[in-house]
Amino acid sequence: HNLTITQGKLFFHYNPKLCLSEIHKMEEVSGTKGRQERNDIALKTNGDQASCENELLKFSYIRTSFDKILLRWEPYWPPDFRDLLGFMLFYKEAPYQNVTEFDGQDACGSNSWTVVDIDPPLRSNDPKSQNHPGWLMRGLKPWTQYAIFVKTLVTFSDERRTYGAKSDIIYVQTDATNPSVPLDPISVSNSSSQIILKWKPPSDPNGNITHYLVFWERQAEDSELFELDYCLKGLKLPSRTWSPPFESEDSQKHNQSEYEDSAGECCSCPKTDSQILKELEESSFRKTFEDYLHNVVFVPRKTSSGTGAEDPRPSRKRRSLGDVGNVTVAVPTVAAFPNTSSTSVPTSPEEHRPFEKVVNKESLVISGLRHFTGYRIELQACNQDTPEERCSVAAYVSARTMPEAKADDIVGPVTHEIFENNVVHLMWQEPKEPNGLIVLYEVSYRRYGDEELHLCVSRKHFALERGCRLRGLSPGNYSVRIRATSLAGNGSWTEPTYFYVTDYLDVPSNIA
């Protein structure tokens, strides 16, 4: 807008934040220059609390790290170098490059900038070799853009010569660093050979998330399962459950009422301010606690030095998902009996873990797994792929695949051998790939016309006998059925096997 004052003059007093240069501009645009008398524009009460600059400061050096910015700028000295009290560095987070010096300023003089007072450097006698002032900004957020400017702080001049310097606002972004852990990993099994893994992005990506790394490792069953005799009275049979499938998407929606109208769909109840505040506090606490764990609990591995020492970490090797089922080394339970199943799973520490690289999504279907087997899954978020990966501390989750139908069934015939004193040795093959492992066998036998009897055969007993022995049988026709019990439950009964026990007292003698 054009402003013209045809008559009258300007009068400025007691404006401590208004620089004289701005008042002189007002004289020019209003056409009143030359009308004012000496005392109409006070030299001592206008701009006496402001830094009124008329020179431009330029930054000469900028260096960044993930949490620091090192700045240096060209030296500046007023005509009387004693008038320079120091520099004021202003900075704040700036997602967009549209910041002005006066953003967030209120009537009390406060604003949204963080201000650092910096002492002037030592003055050199040689004007050509003056030290460049600077400042190291610490405690910054990774991968965050900051708006920065600097200006001088000078003393009051009796001659009211307006001098000083100020830089333009520059924008500097800190470097990326390792992201925080992925949030809320959930693993479920939808079949006997697959596990579905879902997660949420890290709360602090500290860069642009480029991919996720998912490692999985087959877990050995508890050692007590191999040692305890679950045929003993009072000892509860062990059981394991597989990871249940995901709930429906509708039930997972946030901010939804727990109660549904019987007449149909209901609208979600909005969260109160107290609920939102509580969630923010919980989120802040979780982030602080995660940072504490990362800094205190997890110790970084030592990389190899120039002395030739090897990095103890196993090298990563990509495998196809079809090879995942046989990740671990199978060892027989008892070496003397080769027909026992290889369900003991000690994992070799030198073995390469299978892994998958996930790009542009937060889910993965891990296939080719062994049925009813526990897996430990390790999830890392990465925001750099080359020249070397920059990934987060791992988040861990466990899951067990679903049982395989008929995996616990005894394959092959049940054979028998009759000894003296009416002892019958029953023999059968253990299931080759049971659900988890076989903890015991149930032997059901009966003599024709009598009630059915049951015998429990422990895992250890089966390994020693290759089956079991029935003792003290009365003469007669017998039928026997056997079924295995694994961590997933009972298998199917075998087809009945028949044998006849004679009275050993009636056996004919070869003595003449």
Rank of each mutant, 00 (worst) to 15 (best):
R301M: 06
G467R: 06
H425R: 12
D323Q: 15
P475W: 05
G325I: 11
G374T: 12
F215V: 12
E389P: 09
P354D: 14
Y445Q: 03
V324P: 12
C468A: 06
F215D: 10
H425T: 06
E350G: 13
W493R: 03
V397I: 01
I377M: 10
V397A: 12
S284E: 02
P413K: 12
T401H: 00
P431T: 02
P332S: 11
Y498F: 08
L455Q: 07
P338Y: 09
E221L: 12
L225F: 05
L379H: 00
A405L: 04
Q384F: 11
G308R: 07
G476T: 01
M402Q: 15
Y478K: 01
R318C: 06
D273T: 04
I438V: 12
T502F: 05
S315N: 10
S392L: 02
S492G: 12
F289R: 09
R390E: 02
E495N: 14
F226L: 09
R376H: 13
V507T: 12
C269K: 03
E451S: 14
H416Y: 14
V501M: 06
S315F: 13
S243T: 06
V345F: 07
S344V: 06
V331W: 14
T340N: 08
L228F: 11
H254W: 15
K236A: 14
E451K: 05
F215A: 15
S444C: 14
S398F: 04
M427Y: 00
R469A: 03
S284M: 14
D503H: 04
P434C: 04
D273V: 04
S239T: 14
G436N: 02
G306K: 13
A381R: 10
E404Y: 06
T340C: 07
P413M: 14
A263I: 11
K233N: 13
K271D: 04
F462I: 03
N421A: 08
F372K: 01
T494I: 04
P245Y: 12
E389M: 15
V327M: 05
D311F: 15
I377D: 00
V507N: 15
L369W: 01
E417L: 09
P346I: 15
E247K: 08
K271E: 06
V423I: 08
T340A: 08
S367G: 09
S479P: 00
L321G: 06
E452N: 03
S444Y: 13
Y504G: 06
D273S: 10
W216A: 06
K432H: 14
R400F: 10
C391S: 01
E362D: 15
R447L: 09
R318T: 07
A484S: 12
W216L: 13
T343S: 08
Y500K: 11
D273R: 13
V214K: 00
S363P: 05
N435R: 01
F215H: 10
L277H: 12
G368S: 11
W216M: 14
N383E: 02
D222W: 14
T347V: 03
G308D: 10
T288M: 11
T502M: 15
E217K: 14
G467F: 04
T386H: 07
H454M: 15
N421G: 06
L237T: 09
L228T: 08
H294N: 06
T415L: 14
N208E: 06
R446W: 04
Y478S: 00
S458M: 08
R218Q: 10
Q384I: 07
P300L: 04
Q252P: 07
E495M: 05
E356G: 14
E258V: 05
Y448I: 14
E221D: 05
F462Q: 06
L426M: 13
V414H: 01
A405S: 11
F246E: 12
D409W: 05
N477P: 05
Y448R: 15
N435T: 00
F499W: 02
P431C: 08
P332T: 07
E227K: 08
P496K: 06
F337V: 11
K317L: 11
K287Q: 08
R390N: 13
G491F: 02
P354G: 12
K406P: 07
E442P: 01
P338N: 06
W242F: 05
V393H: 12
K317Q: 11
E420S: 03
F246S: 10
R469N: 13
L426D: 01
Y448L: 06
A488Q: 06
P387F: 11
V331I: 15
V501W: 02
N360F: 10
N477Y: 08
D408L: 02
E442S: 13
N383F: 06
K233E: 14
G489N: 14
F419W: 15
I209S: 10
K278A: 15
A394S: 08
S492V: 12
D323Y: 13
F246N: 14
L293G: 01
H254P: 06
V443S: 00
Q275P: 07
V297D: 11
G491Q: 15
S444L: 05
R319P: 07
I418M: 01
K233S: 11
D409V: 06
T210R: 06
R301V: 06
D229W: 05
N477F: 04
Y445R: 02
T210V: 11
V411I: 05
S458H: 07
E433Y: 09
W216V: 13
W242L: 12
F289W: 13
S341C: 11
T415S: 11
R240L: 08
E221T: 05
D229S: 09
F462D: 02
F462Y: 03
S341I: 07
L321W: 08
R466T: 05
E282G: 13
P314L: 07
Y478E: 00
F285T: 04
E258D: 12
P312N: 05
F298D: 14
A407M: 03
W216T: 08
V501H: 04
P413Q: 15
D204T: 04
P349S: 13
V331D: 13
A263E: 08
K357A: 10
E495W: 12
T502Q: 07
T386L: 15
I366F: 12
E495K: 09
S239D: 11
K278S: 14
D385W: 06
S223D: 10
C382L: 01
V331L: 13
R319M: 08
V359F: 08
E265R: 15
L225W: 14
T401V: 03
S363E: 14
T340H: 05
K287I: 06
V397L: 14
H254E: 04
E433V: 15
E281H: 14
N383L: 09
C456S: 03
S398T: 12
R483D: 00
D204L: 08
E224Q: 12
Y500D: 08
Q384K: 03
C391L: 01
V507I: 11
V214P: 00
T494E: 00
S243C: 06
S262H: 07
V297C: 04
E388S: 05
S342V: 15
S492T: 07
W216Q: 05
G449K: 07
Q256R: 06
S305T: 14
I276R: 06
E265K: 09
R469E: 10
D229E: 06
D385Y: 08
V480Q: 03
N477I: 04
E362Y: 14
E350S: 13
P300S: 08
T497M: 13
K317M: 06
E281M: 04
A463S: 09
L225H: 04
N206Q: 06
S243H: 11
G264L: 14
E388T: 13
V299A: 06
V299Q: 12
D323F: 15
P349V: 04
L321C: 15
G322N: 04
S367K: 10
N208C: 11
M427F: 11
I482F: 03
T241R: 11
K357G: 04
K357T: 09
W216I: 11
E389N: 13
N360A: 12
W493F: 09
G325S: 12
E389W: 15
S398R: 13
V501C: 11
L440E: 05
T373S: 10
Q219D: 10
K361Y: 14
S274L: 07
L379M: 08
R218M: 15
R353P: 11
D229I: 10
F499T: 01
S251Y: 05
D503G: 05
S363W: 12
K432T: 12
S315P: 10
P434V: 10
V507R: 14
P338F: 11
D273I: 14
F298K: 02
V324Y: 03
S444Q: 07
P496C: 15
A407P: 01
H425E: 14
E451L: 14
V327Q: 14
H461P: 03
P431W: 00
G472A: 14
S392P: 04
G322I: 13
I209K: 15
